[in-house]
């Protein structure tokens, strides 16, 4: 294992130098490459607001960072409405009576640019989300044609998907199975609005499985459950390798969000001679021969350090 590890490290180092060299090399533009565009409007936002100033759903943009005139990254610090919607010369031009106004190139009814392509408009500014680990291209959401506007609302004072208490409702529109899981008795407090989907997932794309926010599943869990990280003197191997070996993070009918009930969960991996191998049946309930291996906390009545123990005499995870 050590040899292959060193090979991997060498490969990573080589890849890093290559990536650095590539970064310093030429790059292609991420810009509109379609048919000829109309001209821009004559007066920018002033032209647009001649008609749209009555509309609260338009004017709310000025309450948001997108409406900033001072932030050089903001649309309104430069091309204003047309920074996102595209050149509006046709849309703002004169039309004959009864004739429909031509659409804006992007973000609106009958837009020339598809919703998928319109995502590139957002990405032209939002390459990184506050320096976080966003890797949109090739992510599951990108491949499934999820667009920015499927989740985000720009012309509102507060985009619901960035409000912790509301966020899950947006995600549940597609993730209906997770919505059902959230109602189970043992689940993270997502339906109560105290934990957000983005506390664990990076919907803008991550290089980790299930678009998790950290490089691995366990590191994502340790972000809130740091006490489980260790290292411990006596480690429990499946716990170290993946929390998902025993837990279902979206909700379970078993305490501790376990995938199955103890003792069966434990007996899936422990079949030593003696008590771990005994079938715990209904005969071992109160009224029969109540069993310490079945009732209370089952195996954890004694082996209660299932995430690891740091006690010198804790090899069997009971100290």
């Amino acid at each position: 294992m050590r040899e292959s590890r060193n090979i991997i490290r060498s490969a990573l180092m080589a890849a890093l130098f290559l990536a650095t060299a590539l970064l310093l090399g030429p790059a292609a533009a991420q810009q509109y490459a379609g048919d000829e565009l109309p001209s821009y409007s004559r007066g920018g936002a002033d032209t647009c607001l001649q008609c749209h100033d009555y509309d609260d759903s338009v004017m709310a943009i000025f309450q948001t960072p997108h409406g900033s005139f001072k932030d050089p990254r903001s649309p309104f610090a430069n091309m204003q409405c047309e920074a996102c919607h595209g050149p509006g010369g046709d849309h703002t031009g004169r039309v004959r009576r009864g004739e429909e106004q031509p659409p804006m190139p992007a973000f609106g009814p009958n837009a020339l640019v598809s919703a998928q392509e319109a995502t590139q408009i957002c990405l032209s500014c939002h390459k990184t989300q506050g320096g976080s680990d966003a890797h949109w291209a090739g992510s599951t959401h990108q491949r499934q044609d999820v667009t920015c506007m499927d989740c985000h609302r720009v012309h509102v004072e507060k985009d619901p998907v960035v409000v912790k208490a509301n966020q899950a409702e947006v995600c549940y529109q597609c993730h209906t199975r997770v919505r059902a899981q959230s109602l189970r008795p043992f689940a993270h407090p997502v339906r109560q609005g105290l934990v957000a989907c983005t506390d664990c997932h990076q919907p803008h794309g991550s290089l980790t499985e299930a678009m998790l926010i950290k490089p691995t599943l366990n590191e994502t869990c340790y972000d809130c459950h740091a006490e489980k990280r260790g290292p411990f003197l006596w480690e429990h191997a499946p716990s170290v390798e993946s929390c998902a070996n025993c837990h279902e993070a979206h909700g379970s009918i078993h305490p501790g969000m376990l995938t199955r009930r103890a003792p069966l969960l434990c007996q899936s991996c422990h079949s030593r001679a003696g008590h771990p191998s005994i079938a715990q049946t209904g005969d071992r309930l109160p009224g029969g021969a109540p069993s310490s291996f079945l009732l209370g906390q089952s195996c954890l009545n004694c082996h209660s350090q299932v995430h690891g123990s740091n006690h010198p005499s804790g090899a069997n995870l009971s100290r």
Binding site: G43, F76, N78
Partner: peptide, 19 residues
């Protein structure tokens, strides 16, 4: 200028007086 998907416009006379 911010990164833009669209070609750069001449915004010299865009005052946004109605904003």
């Amino acid at each position: 200028a911010p990164f833009s998907y669209w070609p750069q416009a001449d915004t010299e006379r865009w005052e946004c007086s109605q904003c």
